[in-house]
Simulated assay, not measured.
Amino acid sequence: MPEKAASEKVLCYVVRDGKLLVFRHVDHSYEEVGIQVPAGTVKAGEEPGAAALREAREETGLSAFRIVRELGVAEYDISPYRFEVQRRHFFQLAVDQETPERWASSEDQDGVGEPIRFECFWIPLEHAHVLQSGQGALVARLFDE
């Protein structure tokens, strides 16, 4: 059996007033992709913190993010979807601008293919267990002092 590919990823827990910023993919069903947090691939030569800020901006359309703290690193095997193990860097972020409770956003995928459309919204932190594909792995650390 071939060795699984490895990738470096970031996941962003954007927290405000006891709520977590999440999104759903507009063009896919909940059963396919579920509820997610801003996340993505760390580019070559990029620091994970910089990647977290970039991904949060790209996926939400917001700009005023700051890192509160790094929460840790965890591995996640995404087989059978892809034969890959992700090394995920989890960050708690804050957003320093007004946002609605719900809004539309899109990511252009670096100009390749059609933009991916998202619906962004806030959920109570205690509902973060609904996150897709292990994205809630380090949510409990948000409650650590």
Rank of each mutant, 00 (worst) to 15 (best):
M1P: 13
M1E: 12
E3A: 11
K4I: 03
S7P: 02
K9Q: 12
K9C: 01
Y13C: 00
R16E: 09
L20M: 09
L20V: 10
L21G: 04
V22W: 02
V22P: 01
F23Q: 15
R24N: 12
H25L: 15
D27K: 12
E32T: 11
G34W: 00
I35L: 12
P38S: 07
P38T: 06
G40F: 05
G40S: 09
T41V: 10
G45F: 12
E46T: 07
E47I: 09
A52F: 01
A52I: 02
E55R: 10
A56C: 05
A56W: 00
R57E: 09
R57W: 04
E59C: 05
T60E: 00
R66Y: 02
I67C: 02
V68F: 05
E70I: 02
G72A: 07
V73E: 08
E75V: 08
D77S: 10
D77Q: 11
S79Q: 13
Y81K: 11
R82L: 14
R82G: 01
E84W: 00
V85P: 00
Q86T: 03
R87M: 04
R88H: 03
F90G: 00
L93D: 01
V95Y: 08
D96R: 05
D96N: 14
Q97S: 12
E98G: 12
E101S: 15
E101H: 09
E101C: 06
R102C: 11
S106A: 13
D108N: 15
Q109I: 10
Q109S: 09
G111I: 10
V112R: 13
V112L: 13
V112W: 14
V112S: 06
P115K: 11
I116E: 15
R117Y: 14
C120F: 06
I123E: 06
P124E: 07
H127K: 11
H127E: 15
V130D: 07
V130C: 13
V130Y: 07
L131C: 02
L131F: 01
Q135F: 00
G136W: 06
V139Y: 02
A140D: 12
F143T: 05
F143I: 02
